[in-house]
Design a protein around this nucleic acid. Sequence first.
DNA 1: CTGTAAACGAGACGGTACGTCATGTCTTTTT
DNA 2: AAAAAGACATGACGTACCGTCTCGTTTACAG
Lengths: 194, 194, 194, 194
Amino acid sequence: MDKAHYHGGRPRSEQARAAILNAADDLLVEVGYAAMTMKGISEKAGVSRQTVYRWWSHKAEILFEASAADAEEELATSLTGDPLDDLAAYLEALVRFLAHSPAGAAYRALLGEAQHDSAVAELLSAKDPLGDSARVVIERALGKDTLPVPLDQATALLIGPSFFWILSGRDPVQLVPRQLAEDFIRDLQSRQSR
Amino acid sequence: MDKAHYHGGRPRSEQARAAILNAADDLLVEVGYAAMTMKGISEKAGVSRQTVYRWWSHKAEILFEASAADAEEELATSLTGDPLDDLAAYLEALVRFLAHSPAGAAYRALLGEAQHDSAVAELLSAKDPLGDSARVVIERALGKDTLPVPLDQATALLIGPSFFWILSGRDPVQLVPRQLAEDFIRDLQSRQSR
Amino acid sequence: MDKAHYHGGRPRSEQARAAILNAADDLLVEVGYAAMTMKGISEKAGVSRQTVYRWWSHKAEILFEASAADAEEELATSLTGDPLDDLAAYLEALVRFLAHSPAGAAYRALLGEAQHDSAVAELLSAKDPLGDSARVVIERALGKDTLPVPLDQATALLIGPSFFWILSGRDPVQLVPRQLAEDFIRDLQSRQSR
Amino acid sequence: MDKAHYHGGRPRSEQARAAILNAADDLLVEVGYAAMTMKGISEKAGVSRQTVYRWWSHKAEILFEASAADAEEELATSLTGDPLDDLAAYLEALVRFLAHSPAGAAYRALLGEAQHDSAVAELLSAKDPLGDSARVVIERALGKDTLPVPLDQATALLIGPSFFWILSGRDPVQLVPRQLAEDFIRDLQSRQSR
DNA sequence: CTGTAAACGAGACGGTACGTCATGTCTTTTT
DNA sequence: AAAAAGACATGACGTACCGTCTCGTTTACAG
């Protein structure tokens, strides 16, 4: 017996699962989040509506699962050794993600929903791609123990300005990641020296 | 003749207008943004559905008009003369607005919609309560001409961390406005001194 | 003002009403009662599903309204003056109705539903085309006051055998209406003479 | 080997068969024919859905098999020797069956379905509990050879009025079996004497 | 004081998505 | 081969809101 906990019955179709996630991804780009419906997803995936509802309860849940991997990948960074370079590279990736990537659009849509749908809010707080990636970068660039601020608050200082800039609809071209990275480092240092 | 361009017909009912805006405000608190519908608003306001559609095309438009005044008021600050005090007070008001005020909930809901509805995005960019209020505070606290950074980018530095903190669902209690205000001032000073 | 109790609002569309009743009639013939659905009716009528549900709650209700007039007409009889002729003619019409007419098929379907759906049962008991027509015929053929049996029971004696024959799926050709009419008259007479 | 044509494999489970028939019987009483579903039957019987479909194709088929024996039993009569007594007793049993017995409710439901489902119609014409029982009673009470009418038509005369009365939703209390039996006998006699 | 014309209430209408349900089939392991 | 388990495609269910429409009524100013 291969499966650990077999309880009888036809096994879940991996094909259907993939088709649904792909359909959700595609629909987000093609028609936007608002016009994306459970019905539309099921039809685009060539799958019954019931099958969609069997495994997910909201379009947000589907979209989250569909874009989580992409988000993680796009926000992952390679280290250069130089803290400033690393942080600047990360902020650049962050801006690219939020402003231009499909996965970023998915994230913004989900975060938007989360503002008035607690189910979605829980989804995001359970696995937060921005917070997670930022924590990793800061730890590796500056060292975990030398931080004068709780790690979580440091992420807010790093991410906050770019996040606000893009979410509030401002032009991402005007953002200068290197400058923001410098500010961040200087800020932490001056806090430390007090 | 009072009205500038009268073209005959019954004048718009101020009573209906007020009832609709109030209904929208109330419904946001009672059922949340997602469950708020044009039909629900019209019924709660005791007004025909057509009357709502005659003057507004989305629930976002109604909500925006209904909460704009409150937002402006809640984000307005009185000056003390001390820049640090002023900025800290403003950040405190900002957090209170975003995290606890009904008008702030409306703003978050609208900003959420704006992430996937360009009509709402335009609405917000046309009159941006956060940006406007922050610009005013920074100008008055630090002086317009001494800023080493474009005013708009300064607002992002000031607002960004708190904005991200709350929008991403983190606990607003952990925010320390005075600390953030200090950081902001120190940041601008060190930029200047280079 | 034309309408007796106008309470505002767009008036009901007579066109939609007629289209729905026609669609129901047609569908019964084309696909049969079981395969007839509310959705199918609305689509065939070129009408929204909500419009159907606004005025009727079951397909049985629609079918009843659609076929009631036809049933009444097909079971109406013209008098000849001779009781035997009249009753025989009526039974002939009854058999034709039950066994061959579309309206009769509708009636049989409804009566079938009534056996396990009390809502349909009420519908039929409120306006019973068989009972009504039979009562009229018996009254006019034999006189209301000379009956030795309650009128209702007389209708059962007259109608019963043919009704059972057809409903139980037997061949209507083997029914001899004139013979049944004779039996009925003889029966009443012999009851009277006791 | 016991079975005549054994072809290997697991034998049919008698337990499952009985559970299904019982479940059908129970469900008819509990929820009525309309709300009775194949799914419901299988769940109530604690049996896989496939097992139900393997042996029966409609709920009508199951219900028929489940109630046939009961019907036969309830409509069987013991002879007293007196034709009038025998026929009256039979009619009484018939009314009790149609109006009050669960098996009778099953029969009415099936006959209802038969009006718009030819598969069910065939089922009933293949084994007709009413016709069969009536034929037996008439033969034994009046003698097979002295009948002036084909036996089948005689059953219609005997059963028809009660059948119509109950199927059309009238109150069974108002039926007087003895009276109807008298009518039936008198009718046949007067036909004979012509 | 009488038109005229837009605002308003009421509510019907065609659409479309919702989430659920039962259908009958299938795929898997177990008996 | 039969059976339990349960996933699957299909398609109707009845409901909700959408935005539009068509009525009769109301309310202002203009002539």
